[in-house]
Simulated scan of single mutants.
Amino acid sequence: MQIADDNKTPLERYLGATLRELRLRHGLTIAQVADQAGISRGMLSKIENAQTSTGLDVLNRIAQTLGVSLSTLFRHFDVPQGGAQLVKKGTGMEVVRKGTKRGHTYHLLAYDQGPRKAFEPFLITMDDEAERFPTFEHPGTEFIHMLKGVLEYRHGQHTYVLHPGDTLTFQADIPHGPERLIKTPIQFLSIFIYPPGSTE
């Protein structure tokens, strides 16, 4: 007796579709897989169409026939859909911020984070034409990771010389900013991490 479609569980539908996809990928018929797994052809057809449930022993035999492990059958079940944002190389939005001027550019690497921003990642490039350097103050924490060049960076009363691979993390409400370009071109990743409730 065929079980009504409304009674199919998500797991039964997922397993049925997965088994059918694997079987078709290998170019096998229901008869070939059923015979090798030691079950009836009708049973395999019902499993593929989510018309019946079966035990792990049977599923394991089918999986072995299809050349996969039992765990492989379940690996994509109930995985969150996700929704990552990909910004391809060279496509970050160039933005105007305090300090944006000749020889000093900001590329925003992620956007549309809702009404309250949790963070903003920038790729900042500076060259010999960059002249006076701005001083910044904003809520939260800032994380800087040097990619190219050598830069002297000020935070409060201290300065730090940053080489490629160096990382500097600091409280962003203390005045900070580039102090001196030592070796250009300079490029670094700057991530602003805002405190909860910030509207920066």
Rank of each mutant, 00 (worst) to 15 (best):
Ala37Tyr: 01
Asp128Gly: 08
Pro195Thr: 10
Lys148Tyr: 05
Gln85Gly: 03
Tyr160Arg: 08
Gly90His: 08
Tyr160Met: 06
Ile174Lys: 15
Gln187Leu: 09
Leu181His: 01
Asp6Lys: 13
Thr184Asn: 02
Lys89Arg: 15
Thr105Ala: 04
Val68Asp: 00
Gly140Ala: 08
Ser40Arg: 08
Met43Gln: 13
Leu66Trp: 02
Leu70Met: 08
Ile186His: 00
Met1Gly: 12
Ala84Trp: 03
His138Cys: 01
Val95Thr: 08
Gly55Gln: 07
Arg20Pro: 04
Asn7Pro: 01
Ser198Arg: 05
Phe136Thr: 05
Leu189Cys: 07
His107Tyr: 10
Thr135Tyr: 07
Ile124Trp: 00
Glu94Pro: 01
Gly99Arg: 02
His158Cys: 11
Phe136Met: 07
His76Gln: 13
Leu109Asp: 00
Gly165Arg: 03
Met43Ser: 11
Leu19Tyr: 02
Ile144Thr: 05
Ser53Ala: 14
Leu73Asn: 08
Glu131Ser: 14
Met43Asn: 10
Gly103Ala: 06
Gly83Gln: 10
Ile144Asp: 00
Lys89His: 14
Ala17His: 04
Asp112Lys: 12
Leu86Ala: 04
Thr65Met: 02
Gly197Glu: 02
Leu15Val: 02
Ile174Gln: 12
Ile182Phe: 09
Leu59Val: 11
Gln32Pro: 04
Asn49Glu: 14
Gly67Tyr: 03
